[in-house]
Design a protein around this nucleic acid. Structure first.
Lengths: 187, 187
DNA sequence: GATTCCCTATCTACTGATAGGTAGATATAT
DNA sequence: ATATATCTACCTATCAGTAGATAGGGAATC
């Protein structure tokens, strides 16, 4: 029997929920064991039972985020490239507009020079896997330079989140990304 | 005589230099009075003489950065739109490649939800002034939607910095932004 | 059926390090 | 003398992390 990933306990996933929200608001230094514990009604020492160090918690945060993010994208063999791209843009829009949060890995990517190594590595994996997914889409669409198109797509979406949040104008995200799927495929 | 901005003392500008580098590596929580003081060989209490609070230091950081960044761009009436855009992209490239640092305001923009109000306000001003500059360029080029083009340009550049640093692949910044000036003007 | 043992999950109470910030003395130069 | 700029010495709050006690729930043993 292959190794099945152990399911997270109720408490562990509540810890991740709160930590993720805090990290996506202010970055790696913006969540603390104390604050998380206070919010979910336990003591900070109890968090160390589930995640021995902050580094481990950060790693679990990025791993869960990456799996959830990519898992939410539909299967590539069941959609046209345009549909896939529209879905990809919608995933970012939902994170920004509905949750009013930055992308976790956009945040950690900005801070990457001061992140613990394992957290930085997981963050890189997020982008690596996203690039692969997008390259597949652009290749299916017959793009001449799928690697560059994939990078442009991620860059514009992450940057649009930062810009819209900074200007406190979520419509700006819309106008900056509205023509992204069509334009990227036109190249 | 109009109010002339008081020149920064030697020590004050060294404080800003060190704080800026730390902030551009890890964000607002990644620079501390102690670390800055240790690096320039004074005591942390002395920093409070020049910048009474961290909030004030952060504000000075963004103000100086914004003025320097926009000041480094050439005059719009002395260049073609394409030249202006190429210069704009080059400004980001230099920050990333030569200094190996994030854009300060890209970093603070990501963290904006947890920044002290005055620092957040200055960060917004950076983007506001950059949008105005770029809109002028796109308007001069006869673009039909200069606001959207300006936002796209900033978004792609900030996002490309994050992506390239995350992947530890500076060539990625080049390939993601190579066709930016030409493509943006073609619309 | 009661007892023993272990595992899970939490707690209290603490540590050493570091954070931003303050009061007041001191030195220097005008 | 005054203003500038630094220092020593300290404060309180917070940080991640640790040790060890405690409580509850099976499961195995008597």
């Amino acid at each position: 029997m292959p190794k099945t990933e152990k399911p997270l306990s109720e408490t562990a996933s509540r810890i991740l929920d709160v930590a993720e929200r805090m990290a996506r608001q202010g970055g790696y230094y913006a969540f603390s064991f104390r604050d998380i514990a206070a919010e979910i009604g336990i003591k900070s020492a109890s968090i160390h039972y589930h995640f021995p160090t902050k580094e481990a918690l950060g790693e679990a945060l990025v791993t869960r985020y990456t799996d959830r993010f990519l898992g939410a994208l539909g299967r590539l063999d069941e959609a046209t490239p345009l549909e896939s791209l529209e879905q990809y843009v919608a995933a970012y829009r939902q994170a920004l507009i509905e949750q009013d949060l930055m992308c976790l890995c956009g945040m950690f990517g900005a801070e990457i020079a001061r992140l613990p190594d394992p957290v930085a590595r997981r963050t890189r994996e997020f982008f690596e896997r996203n690039l692969v997914w997008l390259e597949t889409v652009f290749r299916a669409a017959g793009a001449t330079n799928p690697e560059a198109r994939a990078g442009e797509t991620i860059a514009r979406l992450e940057g649009a989140m930062i810009l819209a949040r900074s200007m406190n104008d979520m419509d700006l995200f819309q106008s900056v990304t509205a023509d992204l799927p069509a334009q990227a495929l036109r190249e």
